[in-house]
Design a protein around this nucleic acid. Structure first.
Lengths: 242, 242
DNA sequence: GCTAGAAATTGATCTCGATCAAATCTTCGA
DNA sequence: TCGAAGATTTGATCGAGATCAATTTCTAGC
């Protein structure tokens, strides 16, 4: 029990020991000392559904890791039209480094738990650790891939294909190992119909009608609005246009 | 003429001396020795309009900097529908690090000159220079901001707003200092109507009709299809929905 | 300059998703 | 458990942009 390794493990901050961000998120790039430094200025925050994390054009004073829940990134037009331009799940890093103010607003789509820390802490750690910058680059490139995928959906798919693509996106988040030829998969949608519409560039009525089509076709079951059972992932994929 | 600085300057490879990528692109992160190492494996390539740089799902064997011209990034659906998901201008870095195969295809929208180098060279330099990774991160974050801006355009703007947004995007590339209340600005479009349509998620007919509307309204002049004069940038901005 | 082929514009019509309106389901506090 | 407010679904109609079809304009090679 007195091996060096045990001593080392004990140096990892309590908050971080079981944290997904340390395993799969940007904190994985930090050593025990750096984690300790970060944890000294970080705080765990719980947010209710709908809480705003950052407003559009707001000064960026901090960053965070998502510990649980779903965060939506929103862009709006002056007349009130809105588009969700990104969904972030645990253990994603949240924030826009190297920029004074945010170009999007961020809002909790579900109840969310964050590990947040001030701008200065991250900037200091970046200077120390190229590994951290590497992690941030990898996440940024992944988000860029996802954004471009979604641009194809928004620019070229019809309403049914968009809704099918959305269900696949969410089911893939629930079970990343999901294979097209695989079993039934069931989950609760982390978003309301209005949020889905704002993500798909549609109206709530159109989203609802396409879900009904998929239900009548037997591809999915819908229970109490939010609960979805995908009977046939492969067929859902063909409906998605890809 | 024998000062250290002069000796140092002379160490910068001939190819790089006047290169914009060294001033504003990722090569700015490299010192003279690293530039020399890079230039040894890099080659200058000229591509005609329409030439394909990378196919979708193709193995990534190299990267490049754009020295001049415009490159479009395209995503397609199995049935042939296409969406342009990014435009890249000099001195952008071109390629997707840390990924075996490309998720987009890249094509020259105009005649293009590239400085291209093998995958291994970049990977070796990244290990040496955290500065380089920092540059790549900054570009990736900028592209992510642009992609999200465009998602709002694709998801929520109508045809006229999209075409106005496109003209503003291009005029902003031509003159980044362009102010909304500024003078007339004239330029040649770097893309055909079909390419514009594929960027805007519209058809060529719709793009054409919206350009006619803007022309009849006196906001722009159109000469020989490709040449645009923006008479009133401020009014064009109001048409863009922002 | 002239001309063939390509690119862009214009016109007519149709269709998908938006809009407006009403009914139904869900949630949650009393 | 009840009832009200909000969320979702369903129905009817409308309109923006797609589609199909001619023209017209532009470009490149002679």
């Amino acid at each position: 029990m007195n091996h060096r390794q045990d001593v080392h493990t004990s140096e990892v901050p309590v908050l971080c020991v079981a944290c997904e961000a340390r395993l799969r998120g940007v904190c994985g790039a930090l050593d025990a000392d750096q984690l300790m430094a970060l944890s000294k200025t970080s705080t765990k925050k719980r947010l209710e559904t709908g809480a705003e994390l950052v407003g559009d054009a707001e000064i960026i004073d901090g960053y965070a890791n998502i510990l649980s829940g779903v965060v939506k990134l929103i862009k709006g037009l002056p007349d009130g039209r809105e588009q969700i331009v990104g969904l972030q799940f645990a253990p994603d890093f949240l924030g826009r480094p190297f920029q004074a103010e945010s170009a999007v607003s961020a809002q909790a789509a579900t109840n969310v738990v964050l590990c947040s820390f001030p701008k200065r802490t991250l900037e200091a750690l970046i200077k120390q650790s190229p590994q951290l910058e590497h992690s941030l680059l990898k996440q940024a490139l992944r988000e860029l891939d996802e954004a471009r995928d979604w641009m194809l959906t928004l620019g070229r798919k019809n309403a049914l294909e968009r809704v099918a693509s959305y269900l696949l996106l969410i089911s893939n988040y629930i079970d990343p190992a999901l294979q097209p030829q695989s079993e039934v998969i069931a989950f609760d949608l982390p978003m309301s119909r209005l949020e889905i519409a704002d993500f798909l560039g549609l109206t709530i009525e159109t989203v609802s009608r396409q879900l009904t089509k998929l239900r009548v076709d037997g591809v999915i079951q819908v229970r109490q609005s939010r609960h979805i059972v995908v009977n046939n992932p492969a067929r859902l994929k063909t409906f998605s246009g890809c």
